[in-house]
Design a protein around this nucleic acid. Sequence first.
RNA 1: GCCCGGGUGGCGGAAUUGGCAGACGCGGGGGAUUCAAAAUCCCCUUCUCUUCUGGGAGUGCGGGUUCAAGUCCCGCCCCGGGCACCA
Length: 930
Amino acid sequence: MNERSDSPKYRYDASFASSIEQKWQDRWEDQGTYYASNPSGDLGDDSGRIDLPNIFIMDMFPYPSGSGLHVGHPLGFIGTDVFARYKRMTGYNVLHTMGYDAFGLPAEEHARQTGQHPRDNTNANIENMRKQLRRLGLGHDSRRSVSTTDLEFYKWTQWIFLQLFNSWYDSEADRARPIAELESLLSNGYLKLENGLDWNALTISEKRETIDSYRLAYLAEAPVNWCPALGTVLANEEVTAEGRSERGNHPVFRRPLKQWMMRITAYADRLLDDLEILDWSDAIKTMQRNWIGKSEGAEITFKAGDVDLKVFTTRPDTLFGATYMVLAPEHPLLEVVIADSWPEGTPDKWKNGMATPAEAVHNYQKEASQKSDLDRQENKDKTGVFVGEFAAVPVNGKKIPIFISDYVLMGYGTGAIMAVPGQDERDWEFAQEYGLEIIRTVQPPEGWDGDAFTGNGPAINSQFLDGLQINDAKEKIIEWLENSGSGHRNTTYKLRDWLFSRQRYWGEPFPIVYDENDLPVALPEDCLPVELPDLMDWAPRSLDEMSDPEPPLGRASEWVYAEMDLGDGLKTYKRELNTMPQWAGSCWYYLRYLDPTNADEFVSKDVESYWMNGDKGGVDLYVGGVEHAVLHLLYSRFWHKALFDLGHVSTPEPFHRLYNQGYIQAAAYQDSRGIYVEAADVIQEDGDFKYGNEIVTRSFGKMGKSLRNSVTPDEMYDQYGADTLRLYEMFMGPLDQDRPWETKSVVGSLRLLQRVWRNLVNEETGILAVSDGDADLQLKQILNQTIKSVRDDMENLRFNTAIARITELNNELTKSNTETPREVAEVLVHLIAPLVPHIAEELWEMLGNDSSIVYSPFPLPDPTYLVSETVEIPIQVNGKLKSKITVAAGCSSSDLRDAALADEKIASIVSDKEIRKEIIVDGKLVNFVI
RNA sequence: GCCCGGGUGGCGGAAUUGGCAGACGCGGGGGAUUCAAAAUCCCCUUCUCUUCUGGGAGUGCGGGUUCAAGUCCCGCCCCGGGCACCA
């Protein structure tokens, strides 16, 4: 920064910082400084570190975007790097590396814009990103850096798919098992088919289809988000609330298509229960719980003529209050319950102006299907029509009218409800609208003037349930339902099976082919990897609403049909043309970090159990953004559990501790038209923000192109150096909090490093300037107290306060007129080493060491210097600070009291008053109450 | 509407169990050094009253518990995030 000719020659400034940073980055790379030791295999070594305790520290790997980094991106990466460095210095074998999540739609889109093949484009972006991250001085084991697009990586993604395809969920044993075991259980008669058929009487193809329907990865006709303009189906998360594609804002249609599904619902309970053993924030756990959405209750059958209508309810205890029934407009049994004509006395309101129930229902169905999700969200007024038929409440035979309404969703429970307006707010609203009977079955508290009462209380109007509290009433009615055969205990989930097919080019091909009956056949392991064919024309095609999606792989005409012998002679098979979603690679990449060069296994058992630590283990620290709270983290947990069941990994959970870093925000400025202007060009003048001559308004938002407020790491390297950037990002605030970027504040971090440098080195000569004498007692006490605090802060990822403590120590040295004692200098260099590794290495070398500081032990506090002989005690009167006195450490309560009363100020305040109470906390405080 | 976070000086933030509110940094003010400036070093910097000794108020708002509350309890307000007709 300071390039003036008269500034000291050896001042620590941006250009000097850059030169030592590059020197050390080269040396670390040459020496493989950050290589972690494996217990066996290619990455084993004789460093001896394998005998140390180990720790696996991980970032959520990035998508290698072509647009480069801004200073907000590496916040979490710096945090894990500081922690990993600290752990290395405290005697751990540390695994820390970085991979790339490089498949997916963004890569395709970007490639399309630049006209390059996605592979070339992706590889160029990865190279660029590696360079940028290297420049930050991140201590990654470069040998373990993988990309999901590497053939040697996605071979194992396909292998894991085969594991899922070749297994089923045994709900008795509550775990996944190999599919071969299902076949033998069925043929031995140990397991009966759900549809009651005799397995051994089935034809071969019936058997095959039955088996297929049990697999964890299975084909199903499922309603999907079909976006004809993009030519692909989209995941729910890729569709906006308005029902349009997030990219391009094209219309999206719900449409049933045959797709690969993952049976994540089989794991719903375990995914829920095992949250307990995880060290994750309650916020994230709550989000996962909500997503899984477990509800316990009962399924109850209502008879409407000959038709059984099943409802799910969490409140079977309110059965006596059921006064009508509602089916979803898409309910499959609707057609058979519609009456031919309106019964006598049907209110006009229930008919919706139609002459027959059929007309009313079909008209309503049509309207409901045209309602977008947004309409439903914004307009929650209850609408519906009567179907002209009645159902019988099982417990008393009472006939209640059947309605259809869009407030009942086909996708949840049974798509039908018993409506209990007395105890349900939605049912109350509907009942009010259509003039339906309301029966309270729970006694509301006295003075209740509200509508539906959803709280606890004794049952009323419920015959044999009367007087029971909700939970007891539920148990009793469920018992009755089960005895009478009209219902049973049941649990439902919001979680749906995971749609796993995409009509895209840039993704993992499935290791699946189809035979002459169009049934799926898994390829054997020795056929892996199924390589993505090289296509010139890989872009999705725009289609119209009525056409089927065309997977781009269908255009690889050479590739689509394969002739092979899969055990029953040479035959021609058609390949699966869909590809896997982007989540596939991110579901398991952490496991490949462990053993990236293993050609025989996705990870060796030996290596996996070493790093994951079995049982309640997993990745020791996983840092990333909160936006992955549900999808990635849920999918990944699901795959991991399946691999665990099949004996491929030793821990039931992948990520033991999850930590969500905050985001760096930055000021953004809008002109009078609301257009964002380049934030870097805005100046502050007389309290106004000005862009040129125009006054602009300020707001804060996520740093990025759209708000035109990006600051790049390169700018920071030019002005300050990488160590300063690292230090500033860690000092801004706690790692898990959002924080606003302020370039003008970065200078404070540079100043700290300059002072550290100046306290150890003569700026004029560049020669080390430390003394060999001892530090005085006071400095030793400060030094050891600092070591203690910094260790504690580092351990708990509180880097901002660690830096504050280091700054205090350094300020002591700055104030002193003498040269810094060597013992202090050496400690100081260690304390800063995890945060600012380059300057620390440089100083460590100047202090006469020829090996890296990376593995030099982090200082331990000497307990002798953690206690001082005297302590300062605040003296309060009536709880307000009035004075402070200095007394011998460990002095008795009575001595402390006497000393406090002897203090001039205190004496003058209490002299003529009676002391009513004395609070004396040894070593802490004295409070007199007068 | 429900469920999570959060609210502390001009700004970012600190205060581990109830025990000195505002550590550390930015910004601001003053001084030393300098021909002068930059850089550096030192001091001050919550607000407010003041007779310059100190006094009063103060952690979103209103109550409470306590010798003592940013911290605990009750009732609100505001900001951020998630879910949202899930029976």
